[in-house]
Design a protein around this nucleic acid. Structure first.
Lengths: 114, 114
DNA sequence: GCAGCATATACCGATGACAGGTATATACGC
DNA sequence: GCGTATATACCTGTCATCGGTATATGCTGC
């Protein structure tokens, strides 16, 4: 079963990599930018997520660079990861639509219907 | 900070209650129906979530009934819960839109852009 | 010339939501 | 009497995430 619900940080890491290959630290910054600073990935969270996603085949190492004597490991979304991200997005959208529909119905009827 | 990301089962419990007061077992069935059988809440997951949501003031006990000598405790969404569910829905929709936009851009350019 | 900060990867312990199972009790069909 | 559906509740394990720390380099201000 691949349908274990993905947590928010993991989803955002995949979304970041959907824009193209990025290294870990850049992902942290991208996620912060995407969420208007609301989600600030911890180093522990990020690298654990990258390892997990790599083990699951959703991402893979794109290339490694050395910039100013510091290693930069770039990650890339795989085909499987792309499919998985699309499925997760669709699920999120459906659930949002569902909840919004029910919330709207409450107000249309002027209270909680039995 | 109330913006701790809500997990899927919890979100679905709130969505179920958004339709009107329901008792625990009915919530399990409603969630299964809503998700086409994909999400089958365990008893442990549900009642723990109900306790947590009640502690956090997102839901409250609506009434208690005894049907065929069995207790039925009905829960109701509070105003706080309604606001919270609306916020979560909006967040889910935004993230879905973001991911979908990036996935679409990949294909428009025929590959992962740098 | 060193303190502090940004960059960059990596490990570690604690927390907490959830899965899975079990216990309880009643009513119904077989 | 046994299994199943209804209904609530507890308990143990797992695992993603949080928060912190360690490592190392280069830049800026003092």
């Amino acid at each position: 079963m691949t349908d274990t619900p993905m947590r928010e940080p993991t989803f955002l890491v995949l979304t970041a990599l959907a824009a193209g290959p990025q290294h870990g630290y850049a992902v942290i910054e991208d996620v912060a930018r995407m969420t208007d600073g609301r989600v600030r990935l911890r180093a522990g969270t990020l690298y654990a997520a990258l390892d997990r996603l790599r083990t699951d085949g959703l991402i893979e190492v794109d290339r490694e660079e050395v910039v100013q004597s510091r290693l930069r490991r770039y990650y890339r979304l795989t085909g499987v990861g792309e499919t998985r991200l699309a499925a997760e997005s669709s699920r999120l959208r459906q659930q949002a639509t569902l909840a919004e529909g029910r919330l709207r119905a409450r107000h249309d009827l002027g209270g909680a219907p039995a």
